[in-house]
Amino acid sequence: MAAIDPEDRLKELDSTLTGIEQVLDLDGMRRDIADLREQSADPELWNDQERAQKVTRRLSYLEAELGRVEGLRQRLDDVATLYELAAEMDDADTRKEADEELAALGKEIQQLEVRTLMSGEYDEREALVTINAQAGGVDAADWAQQLQRMYLRWAERHGYPTEIYETSYAEEAGIKSTTFAVKAPYAYGTLRGEHGTHRLVRISPFDNQGRRQTSFAGLDVVPVVEQSDDIEIDENELRIDVYRSSGPGGQGVNTTDSAVRITHLPTGIVVSCQNERSQLQNKATAMSVLKAKLLERKRQEEAEKISSLRGESTTSWGTQIRNYVLHPYQIVKDLRTGVEAGNPAAVLDGEIDEFIEAEIRWLRQREAEAEAKADQE
C-alpha cells in the first residue's frame, strides 16, 4: 500500500478541521464564553450554588473546547511549515518529526470530529449513570463495582466532575447498584451508547475451586433534567422511605435516617440518594434522578411509537453490548462496532475512549439511516 503524500494528508486534515470549526461555531462559542465570564464575575451568582456551579462548569468546558480547536489549527499550520523546512534543508530528522506530528494530529482531529456527531435532543446534557449487578451472584456484584470504577476513572482522566448519589453494597463483596452523575457538557451524548449489559468472563476469585465464572452487569444512562423539561410528578403516586446510609458490609455511614428512597408507583421506578447528610437534600436529589429516568422513559416510548408505525424495532442494541474476557485469553470486544482491545486492565482503568468514539459513530450512522428511510416514506 502506497504511503499517503503529506501534502494530500495536510489538505485532508485542513478540510476536516474546517468542517469541525463550522459545526462547532467558534464565533458563537466565543460569545457564549464572554457571556458566561460576565455571569461568573457577578458576586450575586453564588447565592444560587447550583446555578453557579453549572455556569462555571459550562465556562470551563467551552474555554477548553475552544482552546483545543484553536490549538489544533495552530499545530496544523506549524506542521506544514515543518515539512517546508525539512524539504529546504533536506533533513531526514525534521521530516521524521513532521511525520510523527502529522500522525498525532490526524488522531486528535478524528477524536474531535466525533464531538460534531452528537446532535441529539439531549446529547449536550450532563449524564446520570446507574449500574446494577445482574446474573452471577457475588461475582456480578464485584463486576458492577469494577464497572463503577472504570467509568469514574474515565471521567477523572478527562477532568469531568462526578458525584455518587447512591451505592447499595452487597453483603460479601462488590455492590448491588450505584447511581452517579457525570457533570460535564455532552456527557450524555458521549456515554449514551454505553447503555446495555456488560459481560465479564474470568476465573472467579470467590470460587475456592478456581472455576471460570460469567457475570453480568447492566448500565443505564439518562440525561439530567433541566427546568425546561415538562416532567410533572403527582406526589400521591410516590412512596418515600427514609433509612440509615450504609457502607460495605452493612457498616453505618451516619447515625441518622437521612438516606431517601423514592418509588414511582405507576412505573415501578425506584431511586435512592444517600450522599448528603440532610434528608431534604437527599430527597431533592432523588427527585431529580427520578425525573431524569421518567424523561428518558418518555423519550423511549415516543421513539418506540414512531418506530412501530414504521414497522421497526428500537430495542435491538440495548441488551448485551460488550464482552470483557480475562480467561482463557484476554480481550475486550464490543458486539456492535467490532472494536476490540487486548489489554483489559487498561480498559478497566478507564481507557474506553476508542469504544465510546466507535459507538457514537455507529449510533449516528443508524440514526442517519433511519432519517433517510423516513424521508423516503
Rank of each mutant, 00 (worst) to 15 (best):
A103L: 11
L238Y: 05
T319V: 02
P205S: 01
N254G: 15
T256E: 15
G250E: 14
R244H: 07
V69L: 10
A187W: 00
L147A: 08
I356S: 04
G249P: 13
A341C: 14
D220G: 09
Q49H: 09
E235K: 12
A303Q: 12
L363Y: 05
K305R: 14
R153A: 07
E312T: 07
L348V: 08
I360N: 01
G28A: 13
P344S: 03
A140D: 11
I231S: 05
A140Y: 01
E369Y: 01
A286L: 06
R51P: 04
L17Q: 08
G136P: 13
T18G: 02
S272D: 07
Y83Q: 09
I306V: 13
G120Q: 09
I269P: 00
R153E: 10
A104W: 10
G247C: 11
S307I: 06
A370N: 13
T256R: 14
I20G: 08
N282A: 07
E38I: 03
D220P: 01
V79P: 01
Q53I: 08
I262A: 05
M118A: 06
I4C: 04
Q300T: 15
D234V: 13
E84G: 15
T178S: 12
K54C: 03
T167Q: 02
T16S: 12
V260E: 11
N275A: 06
R57Y: 03
S215H: 04
A155M: 02
L290A: 09
M118H: 05
I33H: 03
R30V: 09
P266K: 13
G268T: 12
S60Q: 08
D90A: 12
I269Y: 07
D142Y: 05
I352C: 04
D90P: 05
N275Y: 06
A292I: 10
Y186F: 15
F206D: 01
R57K: 09
N236T: 14
M29T: 05
E340P: 03
I231Y: 07
E44M: 11
L309C: 01
E302I: 10
L290F: 06
S245I: 06
L147V: 10
G318N: 14
E84T: 12
R244L: 10
G106R: 11
T18L: 08
A133H: 02
K54D: 14
R192F: 09
R68Y: 06
A259N: 05
V260N: 09
D123M: 04
R192D: 01
A286E: 11
S288G: 15
T337H: 05
Q376L: 15
D8P: 00
V182K: 03
D99V: 06
K333P: 02
V79S: 04
A358G: 08
A284C: 01
Y122L: 14
L363F: 08
V129M: 15
L128T: 02
G19Q: 10
E369K: 13
D229N: 12
I4P: 02
Q251G: 08
A368S: 14
